[in-house]
Design a protein around this nucleic acid. Structure first.
Lengths: 223, 223
DNA sequence: GGGCTTAAGCTCTGCGTAAGGTTCCACGTC
DNA sequence: GACGTGGAACCTTACGCAGAGCTTAAGCCC
């Protein structure tokens, strides 16, 4: 089964999280100190859970170090107020974040969702419930019937679905989807998201807006 | 059940692939060396899986040799970076390719999908509803009556039909179909597509334009 | 002369933006 | 803590325009 690393200095919260995750069959290593976390080999783990405020080293430092050598998924545990750190974490390549206080069950569910799937980028086709995205054929179907998406809409959906579960930054999405040549209005991306949601019908709800950050495809919300 | 040949020198990857395929009920012969592969009779197998970089002989050499005597489906295992070899492989008649690194599960799924297709196609003939494309005889028939296609029109149709379901890029199609020597106008391809559609009659609708990308043969749209 | 390419006019798609409405968060007040 | 309020972030609709793609007709070259 998957092995996870949790870095969290709060004893009580840490114990709850470990219990939840082990209850789901994960093996969990738990470190209380940031400086210890700087020394571990991230490749040993299927996923990392990093608190932001840590003794020894800040969670962002750990994240930065990890990203120098590995693509392992990283989920940040952040305080509600600390939005600037959250944005910074996403810039550094965090895959998702959970704001404190949270229910350990919620965190466990997010972890499970992330690890359940094969590495999507390498598949030619991704299926989420009744939604099928054919990356090679550039076609999309909902419950069997084909959808007419524009080039940009398809790219947008593909991006979100391939990294489903992760909150993607507006600017990052824009960089990857919009025409890089021109200075785009801030509202351009909204419009395309809006149009995509509409065309996706009942699956439109899976395209979540993450306030102040960007968007996330949430497969838990499928109809 | 089907018998497959895998030619792969990486021990670990090879073992994984063999396990997966045997798990699906295939019989698998596994060679580690390209020069051995040059000596086998491809007709013994339902499908060949060829790595590109091999000791003894390059995967492309094996492919070339195989194609001299057989139409057995060949799937290439290619490194991400090696796009020029991939193009060359398709020119030589490879049916599909999977880029490394891949999940053995993914490869197994592709193999299964490929072998589910009707027998005619493996013998150089593809049938989509009432449309028959004879790759060897370079002839096309709609509902039994032959069609007069030019060389280029046939190549274009063959390309689209062989990779039906995939959205092919304009530039890629042009590279494979038009005269590579000259700088072609952007509109040249349009004209041939247009003429092809006209000649295909009711099947013309299967040739879909994928806006901003290229074209796709969509067998779902057959009349 | 048959087949490939180009030219040119045309259609129409899809992208971006503006503008007005809506939702959400932060902060202050009670 | 409940409530209210201002402002920022976001949603949605409508519209114009650049340019992708279609088609016909005419040229070019083997």
């Amino acid at each position: 089964m998957h092995r996870l690393l949790l870095v969290e200095d709060d004893e009580k919260l840490g114990r709850q999280v470990v219990e939840q995750l082990e209850g789901l069959g994960f093996e969990v290593d738990w470190l209380r100190d940031g400086s210890e976390a700087l020394r571990v080999d991230p490749e040993l783990y299927a996923l990392l859970l990093l608190d932001q405020m840590l003794p020894g080293a800040h969670g962002l430092d750990v994240l930065k170090r990890v990203r120098e050598s590995s693509d392992v998924p990283v989920m940040m545990l952040t305080a509600v107020s600390d939005t600037s750190s959250t944005v910074r974490a996403l810039e550094l390549g965090a895959d998702d974040y959970v704001t404190k206080p949270f229910w350990p069950e919620e965190l466990a569910a997010r972890v499970q969702a992330r690890l359940r799937r094969p590495v999507a980028e390498r598949e030619g086709r991704i299926e989420v419930g009744g939604l099928t995205v054919d990356l090679e054929g550039r076609s999309v179907a909902v419950d069997g019937s084909a959808l007419e998406l524009t080039r940009l809409e398809f790219d947008l959906l593909a991006l979100l679905v391939r990294r489903r579960g992760s909150a993607l930054q507006r600017a990052w999405i824009a960089d990857h989807v919009l025409d890089a040549e021109r200075e785009n209005s801030d509202r351009t991306l909204d419009v395309h998201v809006s149009r995509l949601r509409k065309k996706l019908g009942s699956y439109g709800a899976c395209v979540q807006t993450v306030w102040g950050v960007g968007y996330r495809f949430n497969e838990e919300l499928k109809p």
